[in-house]
Computed example of a mutant assay.
Amino acid sequence: MLTQKLTPAQVELYHQQGYIIIKGFCKPDEVNKLYNTALEDNAMLNNAFDLDDLTGKKTKLSLWFTPGNDIFGYLIRSEKMIGSVKQLLGGEAPICHYHSKLMQKEPKVGGAWEWHQDYGYWYKNQFMFPDELISVMVALTESNKQNGCLQVIKGSHKLGRLNHGFAGEQMGADIQMVNNALKTMELVYAELEAGDALILHSNLLHRSEANLSDHPRWSIISCYNLQSNPAYNETSASYKVPVDIVPDNAIMDWDADSLSNADFLKKENDPALKKTGWESA
């Protein structure tokens, strides 16, 4: 049995507003180890690709599917991570890891993310049930207004899936509905200290500004799916494989493999970035 990681009040708040912030989710020594590995592991850097925003600024990310025996795999599979996700998703089905991505927003050049829902992307992968998908972002550096922290529209997950079209190389939500949501609901700047976690419902509207500061903004975002939620246009099988949970101390105490063993996504293979015809309808 997984230990209950969240209070009933936190679970209720997630369902009410579509997100929660957990302060100090990772300890400083864990953050340092994760961040230094991200900087030094050539596999992570060699498998990064850019996505242009509407202005042509680039956001760099590395995305992989199967959580391994590397330092990030230990975080992704940790009891604190899976225990928190299980409480929020509920249900009887096991938790599966869909994918994780290292977001690398460099000073002065890191691009914006347009307003979108994660399910706006995953709808193209033909996942059936958005309530059974969730994202956990762990800040590896400070994330604030100056370096383009995430902005969320509180409660917008209750709108259901909005239409999405291309915004640069990204998927952007119907801007009229976004503007309506901004008139109706509260805009929140989700500022984080390194080690804090931001957990998002798959239909929560969110965006981030370009990083025009002198400081990097790096984070790891891990996305999870209940095994009961099928996807009919997804080539990786990770979304339906139950996570092999490890103790929290694995992050610091266990020997870790290189990320070179990870099954990284190639940009040209991502269904969400391929035009289907309905985006411009």
Rank of each mutant, 00 (worst) to 15 (best):
A38G: 14
D29R: 04
N269G: 15
E12D: 13
N180G: 09
H164C: 07
K105C: 13
D255K: 11
S228W: 01
L34T: 03
P247H: 02
L45Y: 02
M137E: 11
V11P: 04
W278I: 13
I76F: 11
Q117E: 06
G165P: 04
M137D: 11
V136S: 04
Q151H: 10
L34I: 05
N261P: 02
K275G: 10
G83Y: 01
V152Q: 00
N203A: 05
G111L: 08
P216T: 01
S219T: 10
G56L: 04
D253E: 15
K240A: 15
L265H: 04
N229C: 09
P216M: 00
K23H: 14
H201T: 04
P8C: 14
G165S: 13
I245R: 11
A272G: 13
V188L: 11
V188Q: 09
L159T: 06
T3R: 10
Y232D: 10
Q16A: 10
I21H: 06
A262K: 08
V11G: 02
N125E: 15
D255W: 03
T141P: 08
K80E: 08
A112V: 07
G160N: 03
T3I: 06
A256T: 11
M81L: 13
K58H: 10
A194F: 00
P107H: 07
A256I: 00
E191M: 10
T184Y: 04
N125P: 01
K86D: 15
N36C: 09
A112N: 09
D174H: 05
Y35R: 12
P67K: 01
Q10C: 09
D255R: 06
L205H: 01
S228H: 04
Y98C: 11
A173V: 05
G120L: 09
D196G: 05
P28C: 06
Q151L: 08
E92N: 14
H116L: 07
D244A: 14
K108R: 14
F264K: 06
K5F: 03
K60L: 11
W113T: 15
W278V: 12
Q104H: 10
A139F: 02
D263R: 06
Y232W: 09
N233F: 08
K80V: 05
Y19V: 00
M177I: 05
A272I: 01
I245D: 12
Y239V: 13
N46E: 14
L54P: 00
S135N: 14
A48S: 15
D29M: 05
D52K: 13
W218Y: 11
I153S: 02
G68L: 13
Q117S: 03
Y239M: 12
A139T: 03
E279N: 05
C149A: 13
A43R: 00
Q176T: 15
D257W: 01
N32S: 15
E30K: 02
D255H: 10
